[in-house]
Simulated scan of single mutants.
Amino acid sequence: MKLAAAEIDLSALAHNLCCIKQIAPNAKVMAVLKANAYGHGLVTIAQHLQKADAFAVARIDEALALRAGGITNPIVLLEGFFNASDIPILLANNFQAVIHNEEQLYALEQAKLDAPIATWLKVDTGMHRLGVEPQQLNAFYHRLKNSNNVKQQINLMTHFSCADDTKNTKTTEQIATFARLVDNKQEQVCLANSAGIIGWPKSHGDWIRPGLMLYGVSPMQHQIAHNHGLRPVMKLITRVIAIRRLPANKPVGYGGRWQSNKETILAVVAMGYGDGYPRHAKNGTPVIIKGQRFGIVGSVSMDMITVDIGDNQANIHIGDEVEMWGPNLPVEEVASHADTIPYELLCNVTPRVSYEYLYAKQ
């Protein structure tokens, strides 16, 4: 009996890419595949996003894994490189580097290369994480332009800090700051992450960087994928492995943090924090069994979760499928019950969970 599994719907992935292109029809798409494609499987997801104009990852090992998997699309390293010895690897594999600090710029200028590298210059417009200061942009830009190690087209980018909240004026300020800084530079620009794509049309620019929304999850506060016409790509499922009757006023699980106030029936399901399910999910966090919602009770264990199924009118049996999140139960909702964000839930799915890729019917 197959227990914890992640079903990856590749037709939903293709659908989401189409939706993104409809939202920003004049922008090129840089599909973000970092963190194992947000927990969905790096190489397989890339193989089914060939209509994207480029891919973006965080680190060089992710980019090398894509090349080893036969991916030939342009690949952008969002954090750039971390050591001068990485630069020849970038050139050999046709990787594009994001430059965001003086050390990277100097190393690139000093490198001995047979051909130039494509670069993106990142400016900090208010995220205060990576990026050159606004007053440094012109100096960095001209140094890149004057380096024989850099291709003449230097793309410009920034990153939003609050784009998931359309009531926050911070994004408007960042867009205005970026526009002022790049006004006299004839280069391609990239501002919008998933939240920028949905919430801030003025940020679309020449390139967009969809990440979370590619996988059918809303990047916006208090919204779910369905609000944007997106379809969840991952369905996390398991099975019922035990059914047992619980008398009234009996505690359940480690620490006895929940007890029934009346006699009830519990379904024990094969899922836990060892599979990546959030340990701090609250009592009442929903799961779906036979099309009905039930709430988890007691502490999430490493391998098991208990679910209160009441008087079992749904006629649940050992072996029945349990949907932990997916098309019938938004991961955004589960994240809310666990006081976290959907990004974390998707990325935390562990290797113990088996992956099954569902291909579109021809």
Results as ranks from 00 to 15, higher is better:
251 P>D: 09
311 D>R: 06
47 Q>C: 13
88 P>F: 09
255 G>T: 10
45 I>N: 00
94 N>R: 14
117 I>T: 04
292 Q>K: 12
277 Y>R: 04
216 G>P: 02
125 T>Y: 02
305 I>K: 03
41 G>A: 02
293 R>Y: 14
129 R>G: 11
7 E>G: 05
269 V>G: 05
347 C>H: 03
186 Q>S: 15
98 V>N: 04
17 L>F: 07
109 E>T: 07
28 K>M: 14
176 A>N: 10
20 I>D: 03
65 A>L: 08
224 I>G: 01
349 V>K: 00
48 H>C: 05
48 H>F: 12
300 V>Q: 00
359 Y>A: 08
5 A>D: 12
88 P>G: 12
297 V>L: 09
160 F>T: 02
135 Q>S: 14
26 N>R: 08
218 S>D: 08
332 E>M: 07
49 L>D: 01
71 I>A: 01
320 D>Y: 06
311 D>Q: 13
91 L>V: 15
98 V>C: 14
259 Q>L: 15
12 A>H: 07
120 W>S: 02
344 E>D: 05
319 G>M: 15
310 G>D: 10
146 N>Y: 04
257 R>Q: 15
178 F>W: 03
143 R>F: 10
34 K>C: 11
196 G>P: 07
234 M>L: 14
81 F>L: 11
193 N>Q: 04
100 H>K: 12
153 Q>H: 09
324 M>P: 03
266 L>D: 08
136 Q>T: 06
272 G>A: 08
149 N>M: 10
281 A>I: 03
95 F>G: 01
142 H>M: 15
347 C>K: 05
361 K>F: 10
343 Y>M: 09
137 L>T: 15
232 P>K: 06
154 I>G: 01
141 Y>C: 14
267 A>R: 06
124 D>C: 06
202 K>Y: 12
330 P>E: 07
53 D>L: 11
106 Y>M: 11
16 N>E: 02
289 I>A: 01
98 V>D: 11
101 N>Q: 10
161 S>L: 10
89 I>L: 14
262 K>N: 12
96 Q>N: 13
39 G>F: 00
119 T>L: 11
301 S>C: 10
78 L>V: 09
343 Y>E: 13
330 P>D: 06
287 V>L: 09
41 G>I: 03
57 V>T: 06
175 I>N: 03
347 C>A: 13
2 K>M: 15
298 G>I: 07
159 H>P: 08
304 M>R: 09
347 C>V: 09
259 Q>E: 12
251 P>V: 15
69 G>C: 06
361 K>D: 14
56 A>Q: 04
246 L>T: 10
205 G>W: 01
354 S>G: 07
2 K>P: 12
27 A>M: 04
82 F>N: 14
132 V>F: 07
255 G>S: 11
112 K>P: 08
173 E>L: 13
170 K>H: 13
265 I>G: 05
55 F>T: 03
340 T>N: 01
183 D>V: 15
120 W>A: 03
30 M>W: 02
317 H>P: 04
